[in-house]
Design a protein around this nucleic acid. Structure first.
Lengths: 347, 347
DNA sequence: CTGAAAGCGCTAACAT
DNA sequence: ATGTTAGCGCTTTCAG
């Protein structure tokens, strides 16, 4: 039904193998016959059957992208759209394609990954999340299957290739920024505590305080879900203690939106009463009112580098791939201000 | 290297074809041997080579999703993330996989589609945009290749299966809502004029006005790009005419955010001075402040139905698939208010 | 520089 | 109910 390599061969008066060699642009074919064959391919609008190709040389030229089980919430988060934009950009350029792998829960995803890997559907995998004790990472790692992680692995740091920001430093820098504005009572609102990003950013926040001779107050660190509601709940908790903060480090823009909205409801204005810094610098950070001061973590580049890395790994199995740290940048907008003097004196 | 059907056959003491039949759960195999074979498959952790499978029965069990060339901007728009969530949900359930097709420009995408289709990488395609005179639609349609469109096709309405809202009615309803609040000077801000959504929503808006005996003022309809800046520019244009509106119908949430922000800059408050309704009800509509009154177009369901349709089409080529209209719902939040009397009298 | 032929892993007649 | 066998469309030795 479809036009095959044989049809081209016949019309061009060569053997199928010659056509195959022309497709892969083998140097052992004369320019003349290459031209001849290419002309016929054009005429017939021939395109190689990719399945046959993959079968014959066990390489699919496609990469699988695995999304976290909590697609429901996370997909709403612009982070994912942006990483994928970065990924496709590189992938297209290298003539690879993208497979999407996701599911309702961890189990379903694990099954799909197994099926996809064993089934030879893809040549490598990009993992878009990083979790404590993740079975999929363990699976891929133990099978020695090419994959890269966007985020930092929980263990086997040396064995696993990952693409990440220096979240510890970013968080320290952000906290120092608040300190430089005169804040002393700084709280921290992060996502789920078993996520590595959360841990790293918490560490940066705490070290910044310590190194400035400030005490760490346990009640000032709240961990919640990565949603607007999460942010609102965090504020409830923060305000239920007698000692209220004048600034908050929040690890995600949407979370920050929740925080700010809850603060408003409670009669606090941002940044006049309480300053807020967040992370990710998603589109909404810019669109929000007031626009959020947020750490731009270069999501696009995170994706781009992940794609670059996995393709390198696939094409050079013996290459020395190394993990990559993507730079971040604090974007100052309108949610932080100098701590007002009255409060400074009180504390 | 990998475990194949032959390994399983040998260990289970049956012929390869028997194993193949067990995989496809053929009724012509006894329960006893099925159990025996399945046990061996489990032991060996066997998974069929999907490329070989696809080659042998020319069916890939995967669906391609084509994203608009303007991924840059559109992918930022939560619409796409949400459709894809709907699509994957159904697709996984039917044991299909998802291929991503996108590119820098129309040409690149067209090439990728051609390669993917001719290469037999997918069994069907979902198009996530609908444009006037789109070459890809024409290509797929003329090749009689199974595809569905999310959005309304520009022509060949009868031949093409599409999943869409009734944008005309939604827009009429929204405009009527503003009329019922006492507004008479209602403007319209839409995306690019050659998009069908824009046309349909414009038609609904105009008909609502006409049927209420109001005149249509040309300067009150602005067409711009689907971005925040687009919305801001639209306001510039609207306010440059002497006759200013008391309400605006905006065809997208992000666009609306731009409109509202520009209005604020000009000293108008929303909804006190000017009411705004928008479409799509993306997450940001809820997060914005003030939260947007917006038409929920059920983006998730749009994706879900698209997946359902394309798989049906692929599996029953002679089935009578029909286009589907997904219901919408006006979600009233805080950006519309009753037209204040002073202005009513003035006009 | 090009051709002939075997084989990638699976399916689907056709046989029994 | 199960085995035999011939492909699916391409790549890749091996010959020449």
């Amino acid at each position: 039904m479809s036009v095959t390599i044989k049809d081209v061969a016949k019309l061009a008066n060569v053997a199928p193998s010659t056509v195959s060699r022309v497709i892969s642009n083998s140097p052992r074919i004369s320019e003349k016959t290459k031209r001849k064959v290419r002309k016929v391919m054009d005429e017939l609008n021939y395109h190689p059957n990719l399945n046959a190709r993959s079968l014959a040389n066990s390489s699919t030229k496609s990469i699988g992208v695995v999304l976290s089980p909590t697609v429901n919430t996370s997909f709403q988060n612009p982070f994912f759209a942006e990483v994928i934009r970065g990924i496709t950009s590189y992938i297209n350029q290298k003539d690879y394609s993208l497979y999407f792998i996701t599911g309702k829960n961890e189990e379903e995803i694990a099954q799909l990954v197994n099926k996809t890997v064993k089934g030879g559907r893809v040549d490598g995998i990009i993992l878009l999340y990083s979790k404590e004790n993740d079975p999929i990472i363990q699976y891929l790692n133990s099978h020695n299957y090419p994959f890269v992680l966007v985020g930092k692995p929980y263990s086997h740091l040396e064995e696993i290739t990952y693409i990440d920001n220096d979240n510890y430093s970013a968080s320290r820098e952000v906290t120092n920024y608040l300190l430089s504005l005169g804040h002393k009572n700084i709280a921290f609102v992060g996502g789920e505590k078993n996520l590595l990003v959360t841990k790293e950013r918490l560490r940066g926040y705490e070290d910044a305080l310590k190194l400035n001779g400030l005490r760490i107050i346990d009640e000032f660190s709240i961990f919640t879900s990565f949603t607007r509601e999460g942010g609102m709940n965090a504020v409830e908790q923060l305000l239920s203690i007698n000692h209220e903060p004048t600034a908050i480090v929040v690890t995600d823009d949407i979370l920050a939106l929740g925080v700010i909205s809850a603060l408003k409801n409670k009669g606090f204005s941002v940044p006049e009463d309480i300053s807020v810094v967040s992370f990710n610098n998603a589109l909404i950070a810019e669109l929000a009112s007031p626009p959020l001061t947020s750490v731009d973590i270069n999501i696009y580049q995170l994706g781009y580098e992940a794609a670059k890395n996995i393709i390198y790994k696939v094409e050079e199995p013996d290459g020395s791939e190394k993990s990559i740290i993507v730079p971040y940048k604090l974007i100052i907008r309108d949610t932080c201000s100098i701590n007002n003097v009255r409060k400074l004196i009180e504390s």
